[in-house]
């Protein structure tokens, strides 16, 4: 399957990445090769096969709903680039 420049630019936006023009050209080639290779899966008829999302059968991993000690807010914010009064400061959202 071919992936176009426009699709790469669209997917980069979805993934919140910037791509330079040279990257777009490189990815067009590399992702095209990878997707061609992935296309070999279409040789298999899987119309009657159930999908697997998890290799081990676990059902209802419940726990008791009990309050337990957790990390205090100031510790939880210790790695934030810009914390203030227990919140995360971000650049303006609405222009």
């Amino acid at each position: 399957m071919k992936i176009t420049k426009d699709e790469i630019i669209h997917v980069a936006t979805l993934a919140r990445l910037n791509l330079a023009d040279t990257d777009v050209a490189l990815y067009e080639k590399q992702l095209g090769d990878i997707l061609d290779y992935i296309g070999t899966l279409n040789r298999l008829d899987t119309s009657q096969v159930a999908p697997t999302s998890h290799a081990i059968f676990i059902n209802n991993a419940f726990r008791d709903d009990r309050v337990k000690p957790s990390i205090p807010a100031d510790r939880a914010l210790a790695n934030a680039p810009e914390p203030e009064d227990g919140t995360f400061i971000v650049p303006r959202v609405i222009r």
Binding site: N42, P51, T52
Partner: peptide
């Protein structure tokens, strides 16, 4: 076409 298909082939590998 991609994730769904791969999840099915994963079943065949298992």
């Amino acid at each position: 076409a991609y994730y769904g298909k791969a999840s099915q082939v994963r079943t065949l590998i298992m």
